[in-house]
């Protein structure tokens, strides 16, 4: 009614309009009247669960931050730079420097190894293998993505670690002079082994997402390139990879998120120490998740809060990485028109 009275420019159509609007609204209300409670309850329930998910995310951040603030308040060292984890002594001294270093380094190794290989396998499945073989392979890789991480951990500790000695000796002989690949003694339970194991674990994840993206490359792009006389590799370089670039990036970041937060595989393989080693082959170091799993059993109240504080840091890092990956995917969806 307000709009009709204010609308002075078009006097003629005003009389019929409010009438018809009122009748349709009336009818609509009448038609919907009987069903409204059910609809309202259902809408409330489903919207409620959506909100519940948001509340959980907020609660995770809030509770972790709350316990973390308690721990950091008691910390005698600097939480970011101290290279110790002594939570059970009276003024507790702990910091995440070693953990941050180990987490970043092992994840970088994992990414450097896994991304090229995963892209290769994805290309193999989509463009090189016979169609039948590709289908079976994709299926197998799907299943491998489902293998629990503790099984990877057990395999890593009991099968991979003994097999790493050869590689470590070789690296030490030929690249020991760099300092990064110096191997003194001890079982090869080092950050490099962890990185390799993580690479194997995230391989199926990255492969699966990249494969989906490569499969969506418009057929026309490829056929156009082929028609111009391009070889298969040139087709891939000119049409498949440019199209799939953002997809591969986000796939890699999803893999990175996995690698950053991986707990059990690292906890079984690494022999943790609270030191930063210059050499990747020296046993020792630690990651956020591994430290939580291995220190939790003997932790006191303060110790648990300190572990929660380190978990908060991990949470924030993975949140950023995953958020960035999702943003890239979302942006790609918008401009390429290919809906994943």
């Amino acid at each position: 009614m307000d709009t009709t009275t204010q609308n002075t420019e078009q006097p003629p159509p005003t009389p019929p309009e409010p009438a018809s609007a009122a009748t349709t609204a009336e009818e609509g209300r009448a038609a919907r009247g009987a069903t409204r409670p059910g609809d309202r309850v259902f809408l409330g329930l489903s919207r409620g669960s959506g909100i519940f998910l948001l509340v959980i995310m907020a609660a995770i951040a809030a509770f972790l931050a709350y316990r973390a603030s308690i721990a950091i308040g008691k910390d005698e060292g600097n939480f970011l730079t101290t290279m110790e984890w002594n939570t059970n002594v009276d003024p507790p001294v702990f910091g995440i420097a070693v953990l941050a270093f180990g987490t970043v380094i092992s994840s970088i190794i994992a990414m450097a190894l896994a991304v090229p290989v995963a892209v290769g396998i994805a290309l193999f499945i989509t463009h090189y293998s016979p169609r039948r073989v590709g289908g079976v392979l994709a299926y197998v890789i799907d299943l491998l993505a489902a293998v629990p991480s503790i099984v990877y951990g057990l395999w890593g500790a009991l099968v991979l670690v003994p097999h790493m000695e050869g590689l470590f000796g070789w690296l030490d002989t030929y690249f020991g002079w760099t300092g990064v690949f110096e191997w003194q003694e001890g079982a090869p339970r080092s950050l490099l082994t962890v990185g390799i194991l993580l690479a194997i674990m995230i391989l199926p994840v990255i492969t699966n997402v990249s494969r989906e993206v490569f499969r969506q490359v418009p057929r026309m792009h490829e056929e156009a390139a082929l028609a111009l006389g391009a070889t298969r590799w040139e087709v891939i370089r000119m049409s498949v990879l440019p199209f799939g670039r953002s997809g591969v990036i986000s796939a890699s970041m999803l893999g990175l998120g996995r690698a950053l937060g991986e707990t059990m595989a690292v906890a079984t393989v690494l022999s943790p120490t609270f030191k930063i080693h210059a050499s990747l082959l020296d046993p020792g170091g630690g990651t956020f998740a591994q430290n939580i799993a291995s220190k939790f059993g003997e932790a006191t109240e303060t110790g648990r809060d300190a572990l929660i504080a380190s978990g908060l840091v991990l949470f924030v890092i993975t949140l950023l990485v995953n958020g960035a990956a999702r943003m890239i995917i979302a942006r790609r969806k918008e401009y390429s028109g290919a809906n994943a």
Binding site: L53, L64, G311, F315, T318, L319, N322
Partner: peptide, 12 residues
Amino acid sequence: FVDVMTGIPSIV
């Protein structure tokens, strides 16, 4: 946030 939640490490 559902997307981001998929990536929460299990230990967190």
